[in-house]
Design a protein around this nucleic acid. Structure first.
Length: 290
DNA sequence: AGGATAGCCTGCGGGC
DNA sequence: TGCCCGCAGGCTATCC
């Protein structure tokens, strides 16, 4: 499932393919994967324009788990992969995989190729905007700072005053953008913090440990091409290489790699959560602390 | 207010 | 072998 590292890996790889390329036309299959209220017009030709038909790709951007393709004339296509979404580059003649919802025909120099948005479960989607400002005001503005580049001061500010647990706070994209179930569990284990520890109760040194874990793990995962559970594969179909390094995720009932304790599991914030009850103690805030 | 719950959706794996 | 059911999870809407 694509979290921040998978999306960043995709962004870099895809950018090498499509930066500077011309988008000739677009074919939208399922209309309900698209929200184009951020672009003017109501006709089909307006919709295709919103989907970047007849444009040239300037750059690719990312915030949290979302990616944006920006054209030279300022149009924006925001892609959110959700649970099962992926982007694929293929020859136009190549058979389309099941659940291919949108295809763009591109040309770079003499080379013609197709970019495809595929998403079986359709938790992902496409959003269009007629300017970067509208992307920021209408969509990305609601997100917290990007988790890959957060620092302890910012982390502290984001968690300050929150009574909710760390797990549910870190999963909340409005608090910090980019973390999903896997990396939250991994980061909490590495920083030895309990998933239910109230987010606002952390001491400075714990904030620093947490930040270092979050940023460190994300960059490690980016370097290795993302995590793999079931369905994740990059543009060329290579699975991510990070899954073997999960220390707690998917290891409920197995031994903690640090202390040998059997790893605990429970539903926390409505997500399957795995942690070590010995290494990650729930610390009740004492009355005389502040 | 904010926490819990349901719903969206398909693929897959365990159990029978 | 084959079928059925439960689970996986990001995000939103709704309820309490």
């Amino acid at each position: 499932m694509p979290e921040l590292p998978e999306v960043e890996h995709l962004r870099r790889h895809l950018e090498s393919w499509i930066q500077g390329a011309r988008i000739k036309d677009v074919q939208l299959g399922r209309k309900d994967v698209l929200d184009w209220r951020g672009s003017p017009g109501s006709r089909k030709s307006d919709r295709d324009q919103a989907l970047l038909a007849e444009s040239q790709v300037r750059r690719l951007d990312r915030h949290g788990k979302q990616m944006a393709i920006e054209t030279r004339d300022g149009r924006i296509l925001c892609v959110h992969l959700g649970m099962s979404g992926r982007i694929e580059i293929a020859k136009p003649s190549e058979e389309r995989p099941a659940h291919t919802h949108c295809c763009w025909n591109l040309q770079a120099g003499r080379r013609r190729f197709q970019m495809r948005f595929i998403d079986p479960r359709r938790f992902g989607g496409l959003w269009t905007f007629n300017s970067r400002e509208r992307l920021l005001s209408d969509r990305w503005g609601a997100l917290g700072p990007d988790a890959a580049s957060i620092d302890p001061d910012l982390m502290s500010e984001r968690l300050k005053g929150r009574s909710k647990g760390l797990k549910s706070s870190l999963l909340d994209q409005a608090v910090v953008a980019g973390l999903g179930n896997i990396y939250v569990d991994e980061a909490l284990f590495r920083s030895r913090l309990h998933p239910k520890q109230p987010a606002g109760s952390l001491k400075r040194v714990e904030i620093e440990r947490l930040t270092e874990s979050v940023v460190g793990i994300l960059h490690l995962a980016i370097k290795q091409g993302g995590s793999t559970i079931h369905t994740w594969a990059d543009l060329s179909g290579h699975p991510g290489g990070f899954s073997t390094q999960h220390q707690v995720y998917g290891r409920a009932g197995e031994m903690c790699i640090t202390c040998g304790q059997t790893l605990s599991t429970a539903l926390v914030a409505q997500r399957t959560t795995v942690w070590c009850s010995k290494c990650q103690r729930l610390r009740i805030r004492k009355r005389w602390e502040n």
